[in-house]
Design a protein around this nucleic acid. Structure first.
Lengths: 124, 124
DNA sequence: AAAAAAAGATTACAGATGTAAACTATAATT
DNA sequence: AATTATAGTTTACATCTGTAATCTTTTTTT
């Protein structure tokens, strides 16, 4: 039984909004999340509390009326770890293998790779 | 509640062996999986049954003594779908974005990208 | 044929997850 | 101040997942 305390799929939807908006009250969060399809406030609350329990989100008092919720880990950091997990799980950590698969599935085109090369060159 | 009938982490370990070996008896499977660290036969059985329930593995009678278990979906097909799910979930389907992240994390080097370009050229 | 061993099938169970209601304290309204 | 509304907190519950034991049916041994 792993104790990785990972961010679950439902929790990730919360985090995405918090990462984008930096800090939100519960109501703002519910409003944001309900843009696509209405979400149940109670459910959002539970997910938020779980994230707080996991030390991934913190609750900050804003005013008497409501608290604000802020992410405690950055999206970059999370993505890095998610990438590694995925790579390890699916391709035994072999990036080339992964890239080849994406190319085969037509997910990555030659043009995109060339663009990527340019970006890398610019950075050097 | 999603009904995607996905392959779970524990089940995936079974599938990896079945994909590699094509067809195995339970005992062979347990033996394979126990190479790294001993695995409980009962647990493997349960996972196997769940995969059968999900129509991901089929049980074929080999002889009176034991059945053989064979994958019903290919690793390629599974990987394709896993890639898409990951890409969608983490990068909103934006491959470039994903690639950039991998580059930033030093997971992908310039050399690897150039190698990849060569492979694509050869295939055309 | 009776007993033992092993394969196959079912049941169990704790923790995780998605979803949401119930309870409690505090702020807003009448 | 009493009532109502709402934020915050706790509890609930079905399904999923990892892990494994138990039961049942065959096969093998004695």
């Amino acid at each position: 039984m792993k104790m990785t305390n990972q961010i679950t799929d439902a929790e990730l939807e919360i985090m995405k909004v918090l990462w984008e908006k930096k800090s939100l009250t519960l109501n703002e969060l519910v409003e944001e999340l309900s843009k696509e399809e209405p979400k149940n406030k109670s459910t959002i609350k539970t997910l938020l509390y779980r994230l707080i329990d996991k030390n991934i989100v913190k609750s900050v008092e804003k005013n008497k009326k409501a608290n604000e919720y802020k992410p405690l880990i950055s999206e970059k950091k999370y993505l890095k770890s998610a990438n590694e997990t995925f790579l390890e799980k699916m391709y035994d950590g072999n990036v080339n293998n992964m890239l080849l698969n994406f190319v085969e599935d037509k997910k990555i085109t030659k043009e995109e790779i060339e663009k990527l090369l340019n970006i890398i060159d610019e950075r050097e």
